[in-house]
Design a protein around this nucleic acid. Structure first.
Length: 516
RNA sequence: GGCCCUAUCGUCUAGCGGUUAGGACAUCGGCUUUUCAAGCCGGUAACCGGGGUUCGACUCCCCGUGGGGCUACCA
């Protein structure tokens, strides 16, 4: 385990421009684990500086997803509708209420708020002005077309494309005039001709040649900071000690470090997590496998399985244990054991894990998890009945949703081909007699004795005469309408005498029609 | 094109100079067996290539190659 002396404060800084996905979940999980491991704080900060793409509903989705996974945050947004439950458990004085830009009252937990970038615009402006007055940043009036042409030209020469610095030497007054005239401008940070180096906790030393970067844009205007600028300010102000984020951010780290230097901020520690890749080895994208977390939820995956699965994407414990609870992960987690290369996401393993978790749930707990699905499908069944069918089928369930395809026949006998009743090479006439005899035997069992053991004993003679397969196969089909099911006698017990008799009656008719 | 990251079974990975290269998923076979699962047992399957360093490289270094990321007035 790595030793961390200072107080650990990590953050998850999602941009609410889409539904929360696996990549986000992984970043959140690793940050959360790191915080818990070191007794630190896990902070959620909403990066909604891109007002065009940011949506409130996405933000809610992110927050709900985190809660579903069990990754509760120490500081960050809090919603009106959760105040009732959460507020009660919290110190009232840790909550500050702000009026947010779109008229909605937003509350936060934590002392470093607001935790939504759109509500921190004045803070950014202040730092922007500071940079400008210190001449560390300047207004740039170059048009997109100009910039594109520059870029093309440089690439054609085989050079790194970067901003030429055209407006860097513009006089203050000149710039001011242009602005007054309403010429469109952006704010750029002066990048020194220097080497930027940082130590990545996962990858070691990473070096960049800043002279290849060109002066970077940090804001559209005083009230519109860009991501790279806002993160630096917020991380510093929120006293973030460790930045654990996806590998795609490695290349914007040097710019951020330069910004920290310009502002006199201390540099946080960095750890860049490997990417989660699709089967095509590319970063998970909207088009490819990048299903939102709630989609997994809807498909019947349990959060424990998802957490466990995600943890193992780019990380591995010391020993060979594979099933981990969140608490166990906290104990085992260590950045040292985080992988450097991207990890291809393997849905089969998720399925397996999910199945493992379903098997480990108590019947009661499993039924509780099934509840929302039952509600959605409008299935009403007694607790007693549910318990029985869940018990009979749980080993076959990979997802909660499997319950429905697996247990449909308990509710309603599906139609099936008469042929299905025939066991292997057994003559149809034998099947007919077996069904008839079984029908008679079963009909004679008292409804109060309608249990597996009793059924099994009563059918003993028939089994001895024709063989197990020849007896149980047609009975299975008769009671389930399927070729794959739990033990037919178990099904009968659950179904009860009347329904069992009725179904075997149907099978008898079918087999007769086959002969005729 | 430029910059950066990266490289062990199909996939996730263990390994940290000397191993029969281990585990998990998937796959294949067997057991169990009235079906399908589950479970148990077993099999197939990997160190990208080339140079070094070393008595000895999967392991360390360099160069290729492959893969990925970034290259926005997105995050």
């Amino acid at each position: 385990m790595m030793t961390v002396h200072e107080s650990v404060r990590v953050r998850m800084a999602p941009s609410p421009t889409g539904l929360f996905n696996l990549g986000g979940a992984r970043t959140a999980l690793f940050n959360w684990l790191f915080a818990k491991k070191h007794g630190g704080k896990f902070i959620v900060r909403i990066e909604d500086t891109d007002i065009q793409r940011s949506k409130r509903e996405y933000e809610e989705n992110i927050l709900e997803s985190l809660q579903w996974l069990g990754l509760e945050w120490d500081e960050g947004p809090q919603y009106a509708d959760e105040r009732g439950s959460l507020n009660a458990q919290m110190n009232a004085d840790t909550i500050s209420v702000n009026q947010c830009s779109n008229q909605r009252k937003s509350a936060y937990r934590g002392d470093y708020g607001p935790y939504r970038q759109s509500e921190r615009l004045d803070i950014y402006e202040e730092y922007l002005k500071k940079l400008l007055s210190e001449k560390k940043a300047y207004f740039c009036f170059c048009s997109k077309e100009q910039l594109d042409a520059e870029k093309q030209a440089m690439q054609a020469q085989g050079l790194a494309s970067k901003y030429s610095g055209h407006c860097a030497s513009l006089g203050e007054e000149e710039a001011e005039q242009k602005r007054k005239k309403g010429e469109k401008s952006v704010i750029r940070l002066r990048i020194p001709q220097a080497e930027v180096e940082f130590h990545d906790l996962i990858r070691g030393k990473i070096k960049f040649d800043a002279s290849l970067m060109g002066d970077i844009v940090i804001a559209r205007d005083l009230q519109s900071p860009l991501y790279g600028f806002a993160v630096v300010i917020d991380d510093a102000l929120m006293k973030i000690s460790h930045v654990l984020r996806g590998e795609e951010h490695i290349s914007n780290t040097p710019g951020q470090i330069l910004l920290q230097k310009a502002l006199g901020f201390t540099e946080p520690h960095y750890a860049h997590l490997p990417l989660i890749l699709g089967k095509d080895r590319k970063k998970l994208s909207k088009r490819y496998m990048d299903t939102s977390l709630f989609e997994y939820k809807k498909q019947g995956y349990v959060p424990e399985a998802l957490v466990n699965f995600i943890a193992f994407l780019g990380w591995h414990p010391k020993d060979e244990k594979e099933i981990f609870t969140l608490d166990e992960l906290v104990k085992e987690f260590d950045l040292k054991r985080v992988q450097k290369a991207g990890a291809v996401f393997n849905p089969e393993k998720l399925d397996w894990l999910n199945g493992q978790y379903i098997k480990r749930l108590t019947i009661e707990e499993l039924i509780a998890r099934l509840e929302p699905f039952l509600l959605e499908k409008n299935i009403a069944a007694s607790e007693e009945f549910l318990k029985k069918i869940v018990e009979a089928e749980r080993d076959r369930m990979k997802t909660l949703k499997d319950f429905f395809v697996l247990t449909d026949f308990f509710f309603k006998l599906p139609d099936y081909e008469a042929n299905l009743l025939v066991w292997k090479q057994e003559p149809v006439s034998n099947i007919k007699t077996i069904l008839e005899k079984a029908f008679g035997i079963i009909k004679n069992i008292g409804a109060e004795n309608f249990e597996r053991v009793q059924l099994f004993a009563s059918l003993d003679d028939l089994v001895n005469e024709y063989g197990r397969g020849a007896v149980f196969w047609p009975l299975r089909v008769a009671v389930s309408g399927k070729s794959a099911s739990p033990d037919p006698l178990v099904i009968m017990e659950i179904l009860g005498k009347d329904e069992t008799v009725r179904r075997i009656g149907i099978a008898k008719d079918k087999i007769e029609s086959l002969i005729a």
